[in-house]
């Protein structure tokens, strides 16, 4: 699923990474707990989270994730946004809830991703 498709399905606001909307993602990992993401999300996955702190951007960066969708209308601070921009990491916002966002993505073919050890 292309990021631009995700933007339209979830009616996202694009805070960063507008130049990367052609990127394809296949897997999605949804969590508010960054340690869970670090433990289990495979590289290249889309992160869907209710966390809007700078740490969610750092998490995506260290775990080589493709992009971030912040749900439920939460708005990251300037620090988080400028980090995402520096790294050209797509940071998308949606007003949809975690459940609505995930079920929308799933209905459009995105699959869940848990790395098997």
């Amino acid at each position: 699923m292309q990021l631009r498709h995700i933007v339209s399905v979830l009616t996202c606001e694009i805070l960063s990474g507008a130049e990367r909307l052609g990127l394809e993602v296949e897997h999605c990992f949804a969590a508010d707990l960054m340690s869970d993401v670090l433990a289990s999300a495979p590289h290249g996955a889309l992160l869907v989270t209710g966390l809007a702190s700078p740490q969610m951007v750092h998490t995506a960066e260290v775990a080589d994730l493709a992009a971030i969708v912040v749900v439920a209308g939460k708005r990251p601070g300037d620090e988080a946004i400028s980090f995402a921009r520096q790294r050209k990491l797509p940071l998308l916002l949606t007003g949809l809830s975690m459940f609505e966002a995930c079920s929308g993505l799933s209905a459009h073919g995105l699959r869940g991703a848990v790395r098997k050890e």
Binding site: H43, S53, P54, H58, E61, V62, A63, F83, R87
Partner: peptide, 27 residues
């Protein structure tokens, strides 16, 4: 310092990338 927590790890990551180490190892 929660505002900056994670910056050291991302800085080190950028350095290791410059050294050309394999991405799975850097991760």
């Amino acid at each position: 310092d929660f505002e900056h927590g994670g910056e050291a790890a991302t800085q080190v990551k950028a350095l290791l990338k410059q050294l050309g180490l394999p991405s799975t190892l850097i991760r």
